[in-house]
Computed example of a mutant assay.
Amino acid sequence: MRKLTYFVGASLDGFIADKDGNFDFFPVGEDVLAHLVSEYPETLPAHVAPHVGVAPDAEFRHFDTIVMGRATYDPALREGITNPYSHLRTYVVTTSITDSPDPEVTLIAGDPVAKVRALKAESTGKGIWLAGGGRLAGSLMAEIDELVIKTYPILMGTGIPMLSGGFEVTAFTRTGGTVLRHGASVATYRRT
């Protein structure tokens, strides 16, 4: 069974973006990029990866599939990038886009839980990266097996929370973590 991992960046107070969906104020310094390049190169957009040192033949250890919501997909789409993670099998949960702008991007208009369960049940493959956003993560909470949270040393006070919607309290066990040079941290948790 494949794992669903919510891999996300957040403020100290648990917000993944401001109320308008902007997240460019997160202090993604060289230390954060170096960590991503060495540990999670598949989480870097395909058009960015070569510019930060990800080799074309880099080994992707964690994920071969990405599931994201429409708001997470939109910034790339606004820039004319129809498949920002072309090195991964890409799914976008949306009810407002009816035709995929890219033949390699599969739209999920129906129940995302059913689709994620089907992806998890596949007999081969690596993990599934849940890239966001907060509402989608909340709706998939029962399916999340692992959390990887990049925490940036800022407080926002308001914005889009890491999780929203109705779900049950769920226990996770911390399985690892790294504090980076300029104060960001990356912590991993698995469902208890």
Results as ranks from 00 to 15, higher is better:
G110P: 06
F60V: 06
L155A: 13
L163Q: 15
V148E: 06
G134W: 05
I81N: 06
V105T: 01
R78F: 07
T95A: 06
Y152P: 00
M156I: 08
A109P: 01
L107W: 02
R190T: 15
G166H: 14
P153Q: 04
A184V: 11
P56K: 04
G125V: 07
G69F: 02
G132A: 07
T94G: 01
R89M: 05
I149Q: 05
T95S: 09
D74G: 04
V113I: 12
A71T: 15
L107T: 04
T170V: 13
R135V: 05
V92E: 04
E143Y: 03
P112E: 02
E59T: 12
V92D: 02
F167L: 04
S139L: 13
A118Y: 00
V148L: 13
V93L: 03
D102P: 04
E122H: 13
T173W: 08
A118G: 12
E122L: 14
G166Y: 09
K120I: 11
W129D: 12
L155C: 09
R174Y: 10
R89F: 11
K150Y: 14
Y189C: 07
R190I: 14
E59G: 07
A121T: 07
A121I: 04
I108D: 05
L140I: 09
A114C: 00
Y152N: 06
M156H: 11
A109K: 10
I108Q: 01
A76W: 10
R191M: 03
K120M: 10
A142Q: 15
L136D: 03
D57R: 06
T98H: 15
G80E: 01
V116M: 06
T124D: 15
A171L: 03
M162E: 14
G80N: 06
G110A: 03
K150R: 11
V54Q: 02
T124W: 13
D111Q: 05
T106D: 01
E79M: 15
E104H: 15
P101L: 00
G69C: 02
L155V: 14
R135H: 13
G132Y: 02
M68T: 12
G177K: 01
A184H: 07
A121K: 08
G183A: 04
A171I: 00
P101S: 02
R117P: 00
L136R: 03
P161H: 12
M141N: 14
M68D: 07
L119G: 11
M141A: 15
P112R: 00
G134M: 01
T106Y: 03
Y189E: 01
I144H: 05
H87V: 00
R78Q: 14
T178N: 05
A114E: 07
I108K: 02
I81R: 08
R191C: 06
Y152W: 13
G159I: 07
F63C: 12
V113H: 05
A187E: 15
T178S: 12
D102K: 00
Y189I: 00
I144G: 03
T90V: 12
G110L: 06
H62Y: 10
V113C: 05
L130T: 11
A137H: 12
L163T: 15
S123Y: 06
G134N: 04
V148R: 12
L140E: 10
D102T: 02
R191W: 01
P161G: 09
P75W: 10
L155P: 01
S185Q: 03
K120Q: 15
T90S: 15
E79N: 13
L136P: 09
S139F: 09
T124M: 11
P153C: 08
P103W: 08
Y85R: 02
R70E: 13
H62A: 14
A109N: 03
R89H: 12
T72V: 10
